[in-house]
Each structure stands twice: as C-alpha cells, then as structure tokens.
Amino acid sequence: MTSTPAKKGIDTILKKPIAAGIIIGFAAALVQALLFPAGGPVAYGFCVACHSRDFIDVIWNNIFGTSLFAAPISLAGALPVLTIVGVLIGAVVAALVYREFRLKKATALGCVKYTLGGFFFMVCALLMGACPYRIALRIGYGDLIALFGLVAIVIGVLIGVKIALKKMEA
C-alpha cells in the first residue's frame, strides 16, 4: 500500500505518545463541556475502568432487571457511555489500515492468567474509583486525592518491576 506524504506526515505526529496524550486531554475536556448536562461526575471524559463498568452494568441491568451501580451520565438515557466500544473499533480500524493486525495465539494457561489479571485489575481500579486515565483527568481537575492514587500506582509499578526482574533472574 502506498501512502501519500501528507498521510505519512500526520501519522508521524500521531505516533508520538505525547501527541496522543494532549489530544486525549483536549477530547476529555470537550466531552465534559458537551455532555455534563446529561449527568456527572466531573473529570469523567475518559476512563477505561469506569466506562467499562458503566457499559457492562447498564447492559446487565437492562437484561436482568438489576440495579447495579453506574455513573449518572450512563443512567440518564437508554444507552450508557460507549467509549470502550469506540476504542476497540478505532484500534481495529487503525491496525487494519496500517496492516499491523496479527493474530497472536495464546496458551490456555496464559488465557486463565490474563482473565484473572483483568478481573483483579478491574476490582482494584474501581476501588480507586479510576483507572490511570481518570486519575490523570482528576489531577488535571485539581482533585488532590487523585495524587494519592498516582503515587500508589507508581509504587505498584516499582514493585511490579522488582518482581519482573526477580523472575528474569530465576
């Protein structure tokens, strides 16, 4: 596939994580400016953990008639926030366009490990009330409590790195 220089130029910029970070920050603020009247909370423009929770809880509520917790913004209308669906579609399309889609097979043990990992990750993230992204947004919004979350994540990563290095030595 031959891509035009213009397309390549934009892609070079978009490949820089700092560009992605700035655009996500802008988009999160714009989304709050547009959607806050539908319901809070604040600094909720983008969060993988909370938006997944809203998505699955509202679906579950609709099917089984339960009343699991979701943010007001997701309970206001018929549909919750669909950010997670968008992320999956966007990343698939980008991977296909740039031919980076590769099916990576996994062992059964690996799948069990990752399922459990995802489970406990989500529980801990919801305990924090945020994934690392909403922590960033909340700090940007001036919530000092979120700083504790960031410090905790940094400590967690340090412990994780220590464990990973130990495993490599063994």
């Binding site: 892609d11 978009l14 490949k15 560009a19 992605a20 655009i23 996500i24 988009a27 989304v31 423009g45 983008f46 669909l82 950010t83 997670i84 669906v85 968008g86 992320v87 999956l88 579609i89 966007g90 990343a91 698939v92 399309v93 980008a94 991977a95 740039y98 980076e100």
Partner: peptide, 11 residues
C-alpha cells in the same frame, strides 16, 4: 471519542 482514542492508542 473512543474511536479517536483507539486510533491514537494503536498508532
């Protein structure tokens, strides 16, 4: 929003 973030995240 998700589509844009997914695209950026992939790139």
């Amino acid at each position: 929003l998700g589509f844009i973030i997914g695209w950026l995240g992939q790139r």
